[in-house]
Design a protein around this nucleic acid. Structure first.
Lengths: 188, 188
DNA sequence: CGGCAATGTTAATCTGCGTTAACGTGGAGA
DNA sequence: TCTCCACGTTAACGCAGATTAACATTGCCG
């Protein structure tokens, strides 16, 4: 065949992520995923070890991207770092609502080994937030900050549920203001 | 048998909800659920039409409880109503983290008919929030308020993820302050 | 007492779906 | 031109797990 298809792997991962977001991991068959990119189900095995490997790779990629984004703010002074974290996460959530959904909902379908790596990246990402906040509010105990960060990420990740009522800019601004206000008050 | 078991149905629903929360709908077998209450899998069919009916009933019950809680605030003057909505949702989330998880993640496994009812209740609940906020901030467009409410519910529902670092009272207070701050700023 | 209703049990049944086998085919490099 | 390799295809295979069937047991009630 050797058709000039641009990267098939990436194409499959994208299609699978969309399908998983819409119908859940078990609501999508190998055949469905294949069909979405114009091939049959079993052909997927030329690119991935199996269905779970597909999901693992999707989640790992998301976690790595978020963590990378977070790590990039490490050098900034705390106030700017916080802004960067907020802006970055919001941009990601608004650009990839399907990925956010999958990332939030499907971790338990990932095999143990990969799950550990994903959780590790998630933990590191969380700690980046906590670290920045800790610099800004040294008096607040870390446990409280951790809970506050979870809450704020939940707030931002709500994005896929309130689809399309507001323009992207308006939504980004709203989330930014709300998240910042929530964090600011979390130390009282 | 006719053993003096207190309501078996309720017992099964509880066990199923916990299992679904932990491993996802498809990660739990009929056999698992039965075992959790000390009976075999097929015995469940004496109480429910099938596995999907079980999930439907769980989600319907959650939606109805939240909506009921919300409706109860309708008579209060707006500021108290908002406090009641916040306190009520936070209390529910902290008391039933497993239910919140299932409610957030498993809707797509519910058959169409039940799904419509559940969505309707969710919409009504959301509108109760929007209504109260609309009274407090008449100038803010409803679309923005709707998004803000989604965001705040996402914030509060983050609870099952930041498990047990803080005491329940501390967590409730933190979530309340953060949610209120976020809502307050949502009209700017 | 006799029998129905409620609740369980174990042994099929049926089906969906992930995975594997066996078998093309076209293009790129030697 | 000849040969592989990359990528697909269709036909099995195998199994997990949801239903359903057929068959107890217990206790209430007429």
């Amino acid at each position: 065949m050797a058709t000039p298809t641009r990267d098939r792997r990436a194409e499959i991962l994208d299609a699978a992520a969309d399908l998983f977001a819409a119908r859940g991991f078990h609501g999508v068959s190998i055949e469905d995923i294949g069909a979405a990119v114009g091939i049959t189900g079993p052909a997927l095995y030329r690119h991935f070890r199996g269905k779970e490997a597909l999901l693992s790779e999707i989640l790992l990629d998301i976690s790595a991207r978020l963590h990378g984004q977070g790590a990039a703010t490490a050098e900034l002074p705390p106030p700017e770092a916080l802004t960067a974290l907020l802006t970055g996460h919001i941009a990601f959530a608004l650009s990839h609502p399907a990925l956010i959904r999958v990332h939030e909902r499907e971790l338990h379908n990932v095999p143990e080994a990969a799950r550990r790596q994903i959780r590790r990246l998630q933990r590191l990402y969380l700690e980046e937030w906590v670290h920045v906040l800790s610099d800004l509010h040294p008096a607040v105990p870390q446990a409280r900050l951790r809970s506050a960060v979870h809450a704020v990420l939940g707030l931002i990740n709500s994005t896929p549920r309130s689809a399309g009522e507001l323009s992207r800019e308006e939504m980004a601004g709203l989330l930014h203001r709300m998240a910042l206000a929530a964090l600011t008050v979390s130390g009282d």
